[in-house]
Design a protein around this nucleic acid. Sequence first.
DNA 1: GACCATTTTACCGTTTGCGATAAAAAGCTT
DNA 2: AAGCTTTTTATCGCAAACGGTAAAATGGTC
Lengths: 94, 94
Amino acid sequence: MAKDQDIKQLTSVGSRIRKAREDRGLTLHELARLSGISASALSLIETGKRDLRVTSLCRIADALRIAAGDLVEDRAAAATPVSSPKGYDLGDYR
Amino acid sequence: MAKDQDIKQLTSVGSRIRKAREDRGLTLHELARLSGISASALSLIETGKRDLRVTSLCRIADALRIAAGDLVEDRAAAATPVSSPKGYDLGDYR
DNA sequence: GACCATTTTACCGTTTGCGATAAAAAGCTT
DNA sequence: AAGCTTTTTATCGCAAACGGTAAAATGGTC
């Protein structure tokens, strides 16, 4: 289910990590040392080929000195206030 | 390494998910159905006893109609601009 | 071209997320 | 208390993240 969505999420997260890393002039090995995640894993993550745990995300964010929330989505594009907490489609679940 | 930090992250992420779910008046089973993540897994996640993948985080965020970034940290408290991308402690790595 | 740094990819072993199921525990209502 | 819903916990099995290593590929620079 929704695997397309997952791939999209991972590729955008990965490219945000890569951009932040390059902005700081760090190599994969350096980020690996700072974050405790191996360079090979980081390569897969940055290219969106591997899912990652939120603790790993936070470790990477800490190493890059960036808010973890900025890695999972465009901070600016998140202009979707939770105006109506209604209308959930629970299907024929009830 | 840094497992204390990981636990802290997971407990805060979990409590944010729980709060958002309760604010919307959903049960674990309902959120399970909406997100595709089992209720038992959600219970472990909300109580900070289990790490989760970012794709799972995004699925939960989508189900709750909340920005994924709002689940990993206080959106407001993240007022830490990346002012100085310097000063990385690479130790004796070079 | 050769040489170097960086990245990508593949393999293997260990750990762990996750679903499914079931049982136990906790809450809540009458 | 009894009964119901919700949550927690445990177990099993599978899939996948992760580290480590090494090889291959990419990308400069001389």
